[in-house]
Every structure is written in structure tokens, then in C-alpha cells.
């Protein structure tokens, strides 16, 4: 594949065809905040923090850089007044939605916002609907145990019909990837509880420390075709 040349903040640069603007910008050590982007997942453009301004003045517009591919001759501004204004307002809206989410507080503070001017409906809310958990469960784990239900204003992440999901393997990847820590699980007496289900944890045959839920180990064994016993020894003891 060929290379494409374009401008970032008036600097002429190039990147392979198919690179996103976000990747191109970050490779130049210019920081753009993101919340719904993860390098291992396909971006879907939910959070709108990664906005950049493209085009020739005055025919410019804002686009989300996490999905926009580099184009020949494209002029990109990463910190123009329009970008910063929109980014600040998006952060202010997110801060009103999830006032206690640390990552939002930190990003907002970095953009000069200490308090949102908008109303918080639920001061305890932490979910910002970035969809990282849903995409991880679907595209990396491959089970789609959780998804988005409802539209605005009641949109939320949930198992189907809010019932415990049959396909969930209790792996906890959703909790791991969540940027605000809203997805949690508990572990007690060899049981992991997540999304309304209890999963038996398997202890390492050698050292006795818990490895992962049995359902997860069985799922991975099936995926790889390896005998499941291989998974009953933890990584450190293998």
C-alpha cells in the first residue's frame, strides 16, 4: 500500500493509506484526548473527544479523528479554537453525566473546566456510554454477552433483557477495559460475581491461587482447541 501526504497543524507529513488521522497525529507526538478509542478495537466515534478540524478555511469542519482516514493534501488542525471549544463542551456534558468519574474530572481539569454548568441527573452515574465494554465482549472475547439497550435518554449497557446472560463467561474483560470503573465484579470464596451471575473460579493445580472462572477456561480451550487441563495451571507455574 502506498503513502499519502497531508498537513497536520501546517506540518507536511505522510502516512500509509488507511491510517486514521488519530494514529497519524499521535505518531507525531501530538496529544489528542480519547475515551472510546482502543488500539485493539474498531473505533465507532462515540465520545467525540478526538475531534479535529479539517479542510481549507473557511470551508472547514470537525470530524472525529479516530475513524477518519488520511487523505491526500488534507489540512488537519488538532488544537484550533473550534476544536477546543467543542472538546470543552463535550467534556462539560460528560462531566454533568458522570460527575464522579475520575478520568472525566481529570480531562475536564486539563481543559480548564472544574465544574459543569449543566444539570446532573444522577450524581452517582459513572457510565459514559463509550461502548468499549460492548465492543470488547463482541470483538475480542467473541461472545456478545452485553450490549447497548434503549436510546437516549435511557440508553445503557446491559445483558439482553437485563437477565443474567447465558453466554457470559465471566472473564471480566469488560471491567478491565472500562475507563470509568463502572463495571465491577466481586470475588468471594472462590466465586466471581459479574452481570448478575456467579462463576466458579478455578484454582491453579500447582500454586493454588485462583486463575479465572471455569467457564472462561473452558471457552478459551474450545477456542484454541487445546485440552482444557492445560488451562488449570496458572501462567506463573506453567
Amino acid at each position: 500500500m502506498g503513502e499519502v501526504s497531508f498537513y497536520i497543524n501546517d506540518l507536511y507529513t505522510s502516512a500509509p493509506v488507511g491510517t486514521t488521522l488519530l494514529e497519524a497525529v499521535r505518531s507525531m507526538d501530538i496529544e489528542i484526548p480519547t475515551l472510546c478509542h482502543h488500539p485493539d478495537l474498531k473505533s465507532e466515534g462515540q465520545c467525540r473527544l478526538c475531534l479535529v478540524e479539517i479542510g481549507d478555511w473557511p470551508q472547514t469542519r470537525l470530524v472525529n479523528s479516530c475513524t477518519y482516514p488520511v487523505e491526500k493534501g488534507l489540512k488537519v488542525q488538532t488544537h484550533s479554537e473550534n476544536v477546543l471549544q467543542a472538546r470543552r463542551l463535550v467534556l462539560e456534558l460528560l462531566l454533568a453525566r458522570a460527575p464522579k468519574a475520575e478520568i472525566i474530572q481529570k480531562l475536564a481539569a486539563e481543559h480548564g473546566i472544574s465544574q459543569s454548568r449543566f444539570t446532573s441527573e444522577d450524581p452517582e452515574e459513572l457510565c459514559i456510554l463509550c461502548g468499549l465494554c460492548v465492543r470488547t465482549c463482541r470483538d475480542i472475547v467473541g461472545v456478545s454477552a452485553i450490549g447497548m439497550i434503549n436510546r437516549t435518554p435511557a440508553k445503557m449497557v446491559s445483558t439482553p433483557f437485563k437477565e443474567p446472560s447465558e453466554v457470559c463467561i465471566g472473564c471480566g474483560s469488560c471491567a478491565f477495559v472500562c475507563p470509568t470503573g463502572v463495571i465491577t465484579y466481586t470475588e468471594k470464596n472462590g466465586i466471581r460475581s459479574i452481570w448478575g451471575r456467579d462463576f466458579e473460579l478455578v484454582a491453579c493445580e500447582t500454586c493454588g491461587s485462583y486463575i479465572a472462572p471455569r467457564a472462561s477456561l473452558e471457552y478459551w480451550a474450545k477456542q484454541t482447541g487445546d485440552p482444557v487441563e492445560r488451562y488449570y495451571i496458572c501462567r506463573n507455574c506453567r
Partner: peptide, 21 residues
Amino acid sequence: LMEESCGKCTPCREGLKQLIT
């Protein structure tokens, strides 16, 4: 519009909620 917004992206979802408030 708030009822019909899919709720995927922040400005539309949160913006409409604030506007209606």
C-alpha cells in the same frame, strides 16, 4: 428528537437531554 436520538455520541445524547431540561 431526544426520544429518537440513538444515544451513541455524546453531543447529541447529552446535549438534547440538557436542552430539554
